[in-house]
Every structure is written in structure tokens, then in C-alpha cells.
Simulated assay, not measured.
Amino acid sequence: MSASRPGPKARMAAGETLFGVWLELGSPMAAEVLAECGYDCAMMDMEHGPHSIGDTIGMMQAMKGTGCLPLTRIPANDPVAIKRVLDAGVRGVMVPSVNTAEEAEAAVAACRYPPRGKRGYAASIVRATRFGLDLEDYLRRFEEEELLVICQIETCEAVENIESIAAVEGVDLLFIGPNDLAADAGFFNRLDAPEVDAMVTRVEEACRAAGRGLGAIVSPNRSLAQLKASGGYRIILQDADVALLRDSARASLEAQRKAWG
């Protein structure tokens, strides 16, 4: 870990917003291309993407040397999954569908070594410490300066408990999952429903009150301008490798066929 560049926590505490990209393909080459394009972070999606822990390491190796922070969304709030991705070297963990303060506390505990948490110890041999070569530096700095714990708010239950979730020490950001939140509230694929907007507003207010950062994608009820005006959003994950490839390919093909006549 380099001490020359401020960690993500310091950057966000200074008011910086990180713009990232979802990595759904599990492709190191795609990860490398997008990291070289200048994204601040990349969220390797193990919840909906097909990739394994080995694929995740391959993507991180491809992004090494760029300024792109490797983050991972794990499949579930599972301490074993959290331990494995942290040992592999990710700088932040996104935990899906965190519904209570107790679940948020469990996620934080899984990310931290004793006595502050319950993360299993193999730091002297894992990739995160350069296989022990950066052991002391990692133990001294990682949890406070580098580690991002991101809890996703995706259900009505989570919104009802949002004030207590936002108050959990060690949670760095709450990331609103608008699609699942709308579906859970009975508005499947209707992100512009006023009821969904009201829930998002409640999450925003709770985070501001607790001093927690927010993360989001651009959606019908929150444009990029609205996210910026809110003032609390510190990670924007709008783009995805699949969508970028799909949309640019379709646009190019349509233009070629139109020009050909």
C-alpha cells in the first residue's frame, strides 16, 4: 500500500466524490481498460456477476498500477465471504441487503481484526499484505485509512431501521439500491414512484444526521444533478462494463447500417 496517495476515507472526508464502474463480466481485460480510462474505483460484483475469488484477484492484478480502487460487492452478509475478499486485497466491501443495525454491526465486525471485530487472521501470508511483506504497515493503516464498509439499503425494513443502521460505528457509506427498494415496496421497475422517492429522502436525511456518506446510481428519482445537490454522495456507480459494451456496440452497429443505406 502506498502512503503517497490519500486513502479513500481521507478523500471522501475532504468532500471528494468517487466515480466508479461496476465490473460484471469478471474479465481482467475489461477491468484493465476501464481502470486505465480513469475511474476512481471499480466494484467487482460477486452478487450478480459470474466471477470467483480467483477472477476477482485477476481483475485486481489487471488494475494494479492505476488509481482505480478495487471494491467488491459480496453475495451476502457472510463473514467468510468478507474475509476472503479482504485477504485477496480489496479496499472496500459492499454488503447487500443490510436491514438492521445488528446486521450492519455483523458486517463491520467481519471486516475488522480482534479485539474490534471477528475477522480471521492470516495477514502474514495473504495477498492484501503483499504476502507478509507489508504486514506491519497493513495492520497499522488499513482499517482506519483504507477500508470502506458499505451497506446497501434495499428494503422497506432497512428504511424503517435507517436511523439505527446509520448510527453503527464502522459503517462508512450507505448505498441505496433503488431497484430492489422499489420492488420490495411494491413498485417493481417503477423507480419514479413518489413512495420510492420518499424512502430515498429518508435515507438521505438519516445519513446527513449521522455524518455517514452515501452511494448511489443515477435513477429516475435521483438525477446526477440531484445527487450532487444533496451534498452527501461520496460514491457514484453509474456505469457497468456490460452496459458500456452493449450500448456502444448497438450504437456503432446502428450507425454503420444507417450510413451503408
Rank of each mutant, 00 (worst) to 15 (best):
P79G: 05
V90T: 13
T100Q: 02
T72K: 08
A81D: 15
A81Y: 10
P79N: 10
R91V: 06
N99M: 04
A76K: 11
G67Y: 02
P96M: 10
A76R: 12
V80K: 11
V93N: 08
P75R: 11
R84S: 10
G92K: 13
E102S: 00
P96W: 02
A101C: 03
R91H: 13
N77S: 08
M94N: 01
R84K: 15
T66D: 01
R84M: 11
T72A: 15
V90K: 09
L69N: 02
I82S: 06
R73C: 07
R91D: 06
R73A: 11
D87K: 06
N99Q: 13
V90F: 15
V85P: 03
R91P: 00
V85K: 03
G65F: 06
D87M: 06
S97C: 02
K83S: 14
V90W: 11
C68Y: 05
A81M: 13
K83M: 14
P75I: 07
K83A: 13
A104H: 01
G67F: 00
S97Q: 12
R84F: 11
V85A: 05
P79M: 01
A88H: 09
L71N: 08
P70R: 13
V90S: 07
M94I: 10
P96I: 07
R84I: 11
P75L: 06
P70Y: 14
D78F: 13
T72R: 05
V95I: 15
T72V: 15
P75M: 09
P75Y: 05
N77P: 02
N77V: 06
V85H: 05
P70I: 05
L86I: 13
V85R: 06
I82P: 04
V90D: 06
R91F: 14
G67C: 02
P79D: 05
V95S: 09
T72W: 09
G65P: 07
P70D: 14
L86E: 00
V93Y: 05
D87G: 12
L69P: 03
P75S: 09
N77Y: 02
I74A: 06
I74N: 04
V98G: 03
L69M: 13
V98A: 07
A76Q: 09
R91K: 13
G65Q: 08
K83Y: 14
L86Q: 01
P96E: 02
D87Q: 08
R84N: 14
L71A: 05
R73S: 01
V93D: 02
M94A: 13
T72D: 01
E102N: 00
A88S: 15
T66I: 03
